[in-house]
Design a protein around this nucleic acid. Sequence first.
DNA 1: CATATTCTTTGACTTTAGTCAAGCAATGGC
DNA 2: GCCATTGCTTGACTAAAGTCAAAGAATATG
Lengths: 323, 323
Amino acid sequence: MGSKRQSESVAAADVSSLRRFNRYFTRRIGALDDRYLGQDRPLGEARLLFEIDQVGQVGQVGEAGEIGGGGQGGASLRELRARLGLDAGYLSRMVKALEGQGLVRVGVHGGDSRVRVAELTPAGRAEVEEQNRRADALAEGLLRGLSPAQRGELTDALGAARRLLRLAAIRVEAVDGGSADARTCLDAYAADIDERFPEGYDPATLVRPEEVSGDSGVLLVAYEEERPVGCGALRTLGPGVGEIKHVWVHRGARRLGLARRLLGELERAAAERALGVVRLDTHASLTEAQAMYRACGYTAIPRYNDDVYGAHFFEKRLPARRP
Amino acid sequence: MGSKRQSESVAAADVSSLRRFNRYFTRRIGALDDRYLGQDRPLGEARLLFEIDQVGQVGQVGEAGEIGGGGQGGASLRELRARLGLDAGYLSRMVKALEGQGLVRVGVHGGDSRVRVAELTPAGRAEVEEQNRRADALAEGLLRGLSPAQRGELTDALGAARRLLRLAAIRVEAVDGGSADARTCLDAYAADIDERFPEGYDPATLVRPEEVSGDSGVLLVAYEEERPVGCGALRTLGPGVGEIKHVWVHRGARRLGLARRLLGELERAAAERALGVVRLDTHASLTEAQAMYRACGYTAIPRYNDDVYGAHFFEKRLPARRP
DNA sequence: CATATTCTTTGACTTTAGTCAAGCAATGGC
DNA sequence: GCCATTGCTTGACTAAAGTCAAAGAATATG
């Protein structure tokens, strides 16, 4: 698996399958939603209203979610602009229009008074609910053409497709260990395991930026729609021996297979640096992680360090890189 | 299966799964395609160009396809209008614009000189190929984030989803036995089995319109995007006994489960007419059909008529309809 | 503390998309 | 051969969507 993961050639059948679905879905199914979403309102405004609601709801479970947490009940114009890809002027005017209709209230951001925050009024919320009701009714009408068993099949197929598409759309990049995104991820990682380990976790144990830069190592960050949702580090233990640390995935991006992908890319990075072996340790409490390492070809080895959190130790020999 | 098929309540989980996918896909994946499709050209024109090419290619295997067959290498404005849902004037102008750019040639239809036919010029074809190349590259870039095994999974999931969504989007309607759509389907049915039966098929054997109307019977036609793609007839044999005939599905709409759905709806229609039993016969050569009838709860019975094509005879008792 | 940068608003546009009605040329039905 | 219908074009619009640049206020940065 590992090094073949990002094989250069993608089968034409897979490409045409995706395109065929894309064509069918966007033209025939997805278009319906938009057409009925607006109803009496321009589509742009309807979408904006919907998005303000989405962003406003903090901690959308199952979605990628904000790593830094969204504003409470409001959406900054800044973020809306990024999410919808709109021109600043255009957005400003649309928000004003919605404000004029009494659907949105605009205030100033707490920390930074340059930033303006849009929030739904009760009337706006009612409007969004109406949108949702209509879209639900549409989906329901479509599903009515299927038997309950077929509906279940469809739900499963769509779930699998979404999971895989999300994974595919995630970009993994090497970043500087001191960068903001790196810090964000490592802090989130530390906080996560501090909560999981009975003895807590000391952030001072994290890799230092210089360990994961240049020839000696790397720090990878995974981005979903420009937001960091995972990371993984590689550092050099000794000649030809690498160590993998801090493989972490944001709560909202779990169960996609992202940890495996990060692991695979760290192995590639190791092989590129002529590290023929990579090692890692895990805490006793992280049983799923242990299972994953085994499934990815890691074998248990004796303790190789004095890490206080390490309870299980693994190693994998990497195949030589074809140049 | 039969009578529960169109159960009134659709599980909320299935609705939200479809909506969630819809949101994710149209905003994040599908949108990409459109954005890059046009590039330097308005989206409307790009879409039109693409559609002229699609329609121009006769006999697109796997798609619903034209029941009457498309024009050779050209697309009538009439059809483009229907497929893209455009205003006649708007379309006329766009075609003229494309013609002015040397991408499209417009001629007159052979049979009917009111109808105008648009056809791609070599330059237009090159443009469409460029569109396709860009869209392929985009899809390929996305798939590169997955392992080959995951790509296969995705292809399977999308295939299943598309199959089920197509089936769900098909509308089944009772039509008059003498209507144009009914004739189209029954003629296509007759032509199909004339080809399959070694002894051929005599269209005079088809049900008469009066047999399938009012209280005594029904003729159902299945529509996919306003095009008839299947049919099925129910007539009365005697008191409380119905007969199902001419269950047919267009070549491009097979393997979706449409025959089963038609069968189920015919059974509903029978139950509504207080026909407690339905019978049918099949030709010796239609082995898949026989398997389907068995799977749908039909049991073999002795010959009940003197139909020259009938070799196997089936019957199903219908559960009483709750009022 | 001066200067650059970020976030937003406003004015002044253009392009795209879409609608409606009048009208002309073929065709189909009687 | 008349008349309704169909398919298309043209003129005259409107609304929505989007762009660009100038400028003001708040904040970051050296």
